[in-house]
Nucleic acid binder design. Structure first.
Lengths: 352, 352
DNA sequence: CGATGTCATGACATCGGTGTCATGACATCG
DNA sequence: CGATGTCATGACACCGATGTCATGACATCG
């Protein structure tokens, strides 16, 4: 591979002059510049980042650690939105800023974090991102490496900058819309209670009722999933039957995520109940493949993974530039409601 | 950040000795080694890859270019298996080999490939991977950069090493299993005919009938998707109705992918047809979230993305080591059939 | 007991860029 | 016309590792 010396020789100038052409600092005569550029093109010269970095101490690299990539097919029970959407958002922002992303995957193995960190530090990354596969608390043990860190889709107790979804606001917005559509008996099949999202969304559900001045019937809320359990399918069936046995029967059922809504469609239909004519269904995540492809398409709260990724990247860039305007921590990212035809508007069908 | 000189000073030895401790080449006295290791620990020393690379010319980096990450939410009509599974496979292999992955995303913009390539070359990547979001031909214009390239989930006409799924074998294996289960009237809702996978799978479908010595009824094969079309949902409904009108009616319907199977479930149920009692359904992809969560769980041909990723990575490592045992190109990766309860075994229900 | 070999270690050059400073050629000004 | 300033360029050191070669201290052997 050609070096700056090769270019300098070929153009009959000093390496320093080539450097000036490359970086546009210092003055260069028009004729000289042309000769240098010709030589660079002929030799297919590409400057070495390594050499450059030795002086400048700027690697232009961002390290990204995740257990996300390899975990997605592992716990199929946690079939939330693909975390790679977060990567997308990160990529978009970093790409524009000229940074290059290095990714490493723990494969779900906590022990691998330390060596991966070491690899990143060897490459002198300027910042680190840690992405979790679902909203949760982490102790990533990667602070204090002398490099800014931002957590995405997770948070810790040490005040590390973090970006997480606003699960509560999402569920609240969704349920508020349901109430506006005339629904009063709103069933809720929740995720495993140990998940942070479960608690927050439940709180959002309650907040929507409170805000509307409506009473809450706790019988309408049923945990329909247990992490690590084998048979979540039958668990869901039981939960659905419990909701269907209530009187008055719920007019709509919210689920912990879109995958659960997909199962719910199947269970309801096997009971001869039509969606949305007999009962409405709403999900959470806006997992496109599911929500848009289901029949009928699913109304759901958007889990703003793309936006979380973007914000995490921007915040990291801010920290690297030593300007972090964000004071709140963690930053809560709200998502809109995706309104589709799985929910009947009761105010339309039977106008007061 | 501490350098090898800091460590050397602190331990009272020369930098070269520290280097020897680091790399385990050359002999080092036990006492000296201890002192050096203590100094490294105290200073939190991490060697600089940049400096190392200047001498060794080995960056330990692999570049990965994809339009996949950011495209997945764009074309929702091409809702195949998430390509990030390929990344997973790549990660697994590269992680074990001590290589670090740099990723860049074109965001679907062909113009961005060249600058991204340049960035990678500046970092002196030792190899390049190009990952496509679905099986297709590409002209990535990235060969000839003096760096080995492997294509994953795509191929070109220039003989660049490539790893692609064996769509034909997958469909053939699936249909063969269906035939073994007693099915003879096998409907097939295909992907947009312009997709490579569509043609290959159709060939596999026919091959299965040929191998079994059974006649093929072309009326059973209907294109149920058009790329870029807005209303693929109603297109699918029409296609399904056409199949259902055939006499004798198909006993099983294969779909172009799992997302289509999910829609098919909805359409069949809206027609009052039960799966699998009245008609069986089989998909393609083994998109876990769909196939395992659908009710009933979906029989499908596994699209071996994880394996494709692994093989692509291994092949690239082979090329870097200048040993490429693979002669066939592209390499076809077969996938098994995931047999689940969406298909009825007719030989069981009505033994001859 | 001197020649030879092994071990442990260090001095020095080198990789490919860039920052600092110096230098020569002109243009401008008082 | 000499002093000063600007422009274009190059010499040289340096960033942090590692390869090459040299060196001194011992151990081993004939």
């Amino acid at each position: 591979m050609a070096t700056i010396y090769d270019v300098a020789n070929s153009a009959g100038v000093s390496p320093k002059t080539v450097s000036r052409v490359l970086n546009g600092d210092g003055p260069v005569g028009a004729k000289t510049r042309e000769a240098v550029e010709k030589a660079m093109a002929e030799l297919g010269y590409v400057p070495s980042n390594a050499a450059r970095m030795m002086r400048s101490n700027r690697s232009g690299l961002i390290g990204l650690i995740t257990g996300a990539i390899s975990s997605s097919s592992m716990h199929t029970e946690v079939s939330g939105l693909p975390d790679t959407l977060i990567l997308q958002g990160i990529q978009q922002v970093l790409g524009d800023s000229g940074m290059t992303l290095m990714i490493a995957d723990t494969g779900g193995d906590r022990e691998k974090v330390a060596p991966l960190m070491r690899t990143f530090l060897q490459h002198r990354v300027e910042g680190l991102l840690y992405v979790a596969d679902y909203h949760r608390e982490v102790q990533p043990r990667l602070a204090g490496a002398g490099v800014p860190v931002v957590l995405a889709n997770c948070y810790d107790t040490k005040g590390t900058p973090a970006i997480v979804p606003d699960d509560e606001a999402g569920q609240r917005a969704l349920v508020t819309r349901l109430i506006e559509a005339g629904h009063r008996r709103i069933g809720f099949l929740t995720l495993d209670a140990s998940m942070r999202a479960a608690a927050l969304r439940h709180a959002g559900y309650r907040a929507a009722f409170d805000a509307a001045g409506l009473p809450i019937d706790d019988a309408l809320v049923v945990e329909a999933q247990a992490q690590g359990a084998e048979d979540n399918a039958s668990r869901l069936e039981e939960a659905v039957d419990r909701l269907l046995a209530l009187r008055p029967r719920p007019t709509v059922i919210c689920t912990g995520n879109d995958a659960m809504a997909m199962q719910l469609y199947g269970v309801l239909r096997s009971r001869g109940i039509r969606v949305p004519e007999d009962i409405s269904v709403a999900g959470f995540d806006d997992h496109r493949v599911i929500a848009e492809t289901l029949y009928p398409p699913l109304t759901t709260a958007v889990l703003p993974y793309l936006d979380i990724g973007r914000r995490a990247a921007r915040r990291l860039l801010g920290l690297i530039a030593e300007a972090d305007p964000d004071t709140a921590n963690p930053v809560l990212v709200p998502g809109p409601v995706a309104w589709r035809s799985s929910v009947t508007d009761l105010t339309q069908s039977s106008p007061k």
